[in-house]
C-alpha cells in the first residue's frame, strides 16, 4: 500500500511540515477503512467537479483523512447515472456524491427514477450564485437597460446561452421570460466556460453564468455583470474589475427583475449508512472549510457560504425540491412519463 505512495512523496517531503496542527484526533469512533469515493454527477471541468477536486486536494494536502479521496465522474443521463449508483450502494460508508441542481431537475425532466429522499443528506458546503452577464461592448449598463430593450423588440430577438437543457440556466431563462413578458431563444452548450466564451465572441446576447465561470472575462473588460439572482448583494468587497467588486453588482430584484435562484453545492451519501460515518464526514468538511485554500476558492467564486447539516439541511433540500417542481411544471419541462 505505502510503497507507491512513498515513491511519489520523495522529494516533496517539505510540504508535510506545518500541516499537523490541523489534523487533531477526530471526536467520533468511526474512521474510513478504504479510500473515500466522491461521485461527481457531471463531466470533468464543471463547477461541481472543480469543487470536488479542490476538496480532494485540500484533504490530501492537509492530511485531513487517513484514507485517500477518489473523484469519479458519472455524468451519463444528465447525472442520473451517478445518482442511481449512489441510490443502489445501500450502506456503503465510503461513498459520497456532490450535487448540483440536477439532483432535482434530472428526475423531473428525464423520468430517471431517483430522488434526494433515496439518499442520506450530509452537508451543504455552499450555494452557487447566478449573475446576468452581457458583452461589455453592448450599450447595456444596467439590468433595466437590457430588460427595456428586450421589451421593445419582438419575441426571440435575444439569445440566451446556458449549460444543458431543462437545467438551472434554462429555468432562470424561463423565469426571466415571465418577468419581461418576451420570449428569448435559449441555446444550450456543454459547459459554463464555453457559454462565457460564446458571450465574449458575441454569438449570444446574454448568459446567467456562475461568478467563477465568467470572472476572468469581467476582469479583462470583455463582459459586464448586470445583476445577481439573489435577495441580497454578494458579500465580497475585494476590488475585481477596476473599482468594482462583487458587492457592487445590484440584485436583479432591485432592477425590477424579480427572479431569485441559488444552486446547491452539497453532499449526500447512499441510503442506510451509519450515523457515525455521516458525523465523520460532517467533521471532515468542517475542517476543510477552515483551510485557506477553501476560503480562497469561496472568494474567487463569490460563493454564498451557507453551511448546513442534519435536519436543517434536509429541510432546505425538501423546500428546494418543491421550488424546482413548481418551476419545472410551469416551464413545461416535466418528462411525459411522470
Amino acid at each position: 500500500m505505502s510503497v507507491a505512495k512513498t515513491v511519489l512523496t520523495i522529494g516533496t517531503a517539505a510540504f508535510a511540515s506545518g500541516v499537523f496542527a490541523l489534523s487533531a484526533l477526530p471526536a467520533n469512533a468511526w474512521e474510513p477503512s478504504h479510500p473515500i469515493e466522491i461521485i461527481v454527477p457531471a463531466g470533468t471541468g464543471g463547477g461541481a467537479d472543480q469543487m470536488a477536486r479542490a476538496m480532494q486536494g485540500i484533504i490530501t494536502k492537509h492530511n485531513l483523512s487517513k484514507q485517500s479521496v477518489v473523484v469519479i465522474n458519472k455524468s451519463g443521463g444528465a447525472g442520473g447515472e451517478g445518482f442511481l449508483d449512489v441510490k443502489n450502494s445501500k450502506g456503503n460508508d465510503h461513498k459520497l456524491i456532490i450535487t448540483l441542481s440536477n439532483l432535482f431537475t434530472t428526475p423531473m425532466a428525464t423520468g430517471i427514477p431517483f430522488s434526494w429522499k433515496d439518499m442520506t443528506p450530509v452537508a451543504m458546503m455552499a450555494l452557487d450564485e447566478f449573475i446576468l452577464w452581457v458583452n461589455a461592448d453592448k450599450p447595456y449598463k444596467t439590468a433595466k437597460d437590457y430588460v427595456d430593450d428586450i421589451k421593445s423588440k419582438p419575441d426571440n430577438s435575444f439569445k440566451m446561452g446556458g449549460t444543458g437543457s431543462k437545467q438551472e440556466d434554462q429555468i432562470i431563462t424561463v423565469a426571466l421570460q415571465k418577468a419581461t413578458g418576451k420570449k428569448m431563444t435559449y441555446i444550450p452548450y456543454k459547459g459554463g466556460g464555453e457559454v462565457a466564451v460564446q458571450l465574449v465572441g458575441n454569438h449570444i446576447d446574454s448568459s446567467v453564468n456562475n461568478p467563477i465561470e465568467a470572472v476572468a472575462h469581467w476582469r479583462a473588460g470583455k463582459l459586464r455583470p448586470l445583476c445577481v439572482f439573489d435577495n441580497k448583494k454578494l458579500d465580497y468587497h475585494e476590488k475585481i474589475a477596476g473599482d468594482l467588486a462583487w458587492d457592487s453588482i445590484p440584485t436583479c430584484k432591485s432592477a425590477g427583475l424579480d427572479v431569485e435562484y441559488l444552486m446547491l453545492r452539497g453532499y449526500f451519501m447512499p441510503p442506510g449508512v451509519s450515523p457515525d460515518a455521516v458525523a465523520y464526514y460532517v467533521d471532515l468538511f468542517k475542517k476543510v472549510r477552515e483551510t485557506p485554500e477553501w476560503k480562497k476558492l469561496m472568494s474567487d467564486g463569490a460563493f454564498n457560504q451557507s453551511f448546513m447539516t442534519g435536519d436543517e439541511y434536509a429541510k432546505w433540500v425538501a423546500d428546494a425540491e418543491k421550488l424546482h417542481e413548481g418551476l419545472m411544471k410551469e416551464a413545461g419541462f416535466m418528462a411525459k412519463t411522470n
Binding site: 500500500m1 507507491a4 505512495k5 478504504h34 469515493e37 477518489v70 469519479i72
Partner: peptide
C-alpha cells in the same frame, strides 16, 4: 492493482476476494 487502485486511485471492479482482504 497497485498501479490503478493505490497509485492512480482509479477503482476497478472488486469482488469477494478483495473484500475479504479488506479493500
Amino acid at each position: 492493482f497497485i498501479t490503478f487502485e493505490i497509485w492512480f486511485l482509479v477503482p476497478l471492479p472488486k469482488g469477494p476476494l478483495e473484500a475479504a482482504l479488506g479493500f
